[in-house]
């Protein structure tokens, strides 16, 4: 059987599969379904300094082979995540990647400083790409200079490696990737959702109360693969790829394009057991391809 473990800055991954931020809460619901220690890592829901309620409902809408969401970074706030959610997750043998969000640069710095002290948080994921909040989020992810400055500020306080989550809603994603690398990022995660809109057939008005939402699911995979492919060529730091992953073949595609690990988002709603299923399926798929170590997959499109 192929070896599917992967080492990344701060992360010893048993396998390259992890649930994507916002699609897995803080793990509690899925822990009722399977042993979370099976996962390579867990990307927890975005955490902000203060608790957030998020956007009005409807917050989700279905689209062809995908969905739109405008949750609006609802989360219980830094204090509760530190005192309740992260300690609870310690019962599992799994590294946690903390998704950090905010409105101002100082918010990111404050959350990063504290949350990186938690013993099971092995890496941060700076969410500079949330399309669903009025302030912050995506504004940090669409301007290369601002993105670099944010990474520098967070790197100065974080006790663990810092990954930056890129937005696909830019004209040149490579430019942002290079900027965060210069800023000192240890890795890149990509992609966040694509801004979209669905109209109600009867009223002609947007289905989602927020108007726009972020598109995810199988429909976005070709865009995500293209972006991982481009960024891989342009940076030295590792990439955790995501966008429409539903099966082991999708994981192989992302890794071939240049990802070192892969996150699964929307597919968790379609099949809550999708992550353990992929983890089980992956070694078999690699055997079929005659690949001994999963590391040999990474970036093979470029060789």
């Amino acid at each position: 059987m192929s070896n599917i473990s992967i080492q990344l800055p701060g992360l010893e991954l048993k396998n390259p599969i992890m649930p994507a931020s916002g699609c897995f809460g803080f793990g509690r619901e899925f822990a009722n379904l399977y042993d979370l220690s099976k996962l390579g890592a867990i990307m927890i829901k975005a955490t902000t300094v203060e608790p957030r309620f998020g956007n009005p409902t409807p917050r989700v809408a279905e689209t062809p082979a995908g969905m739109l969401n405008a949750i609006g970074l609802q989360n219980p706030g830094l204090e509760k995540v530190m005192s309740e959610e992260l300690p609870w997750l310690e019962r599992f043998d799994v590294p946690i990647i903390a998704n950090v969000a905010g409105s101002l640069l100082d918010d990111y710095v404050d959350v990063a400083r504290e949350i990186s002290k938690a013993p099971n948080v092995k890496a941060l994921e700076l969410n500079i790409s949330c399309p669903n909040v009025k302030q912050g989020g995506i504004t940090f992810g669409t301007d290369a200079v601002v993105a670099r400055q944010l990474v520098e500020a967070v790197k100065a306080v974080s006790k663990v490696p810092v990954y930056v989550k890129l937005s696909p809603n830019v004209t040149n994603i490579v430019e942002i990737a290079q900027a965060v690398e210069i800023g000192g990022a240890d890795g890149i995660t990509m992609i966040n959702t694509l801004v979209g809109m669905r109209l109600d057939e009867r009223t002609g008005k947007p289905v989602i109360a927020n108007g726009t939402g972020g598109l995810s699911g199988p429909a976005v995979k070709p865009v995500a693969i293209r972006m991982v492919y481009e960024v891989y060529k342009a940076v030295e730091i590792p990439i955790i790829g995501m966008g429409g992953v539903t099966c082991a073949q999708d994981v192989i595609d992302f890794m071939s394009a240049g990802a070192s690990a892969v996150a699964v988002g929307t597919a968790n709603f379609v099949d809550p057991f999708v992550c353990p299923k992929i983890i089980e399926e992956l070694p078999k798929k690699l055997d079929e391809l005659g690949i001994e170590s999963i590391k040999d997959l990474i970036g093979r499109s470029h060789r």
Binding site: G22, C23, F24, E29, G54, M67, I71, F269
Partner: peptide
């Protein structure tokens, strides 16, 4: 979305 309490939809 999820139906089990994880996605805040």
């Amino acid at each position: 979305g999820c139906g089990i309490g994880a996605c805040f939809a």
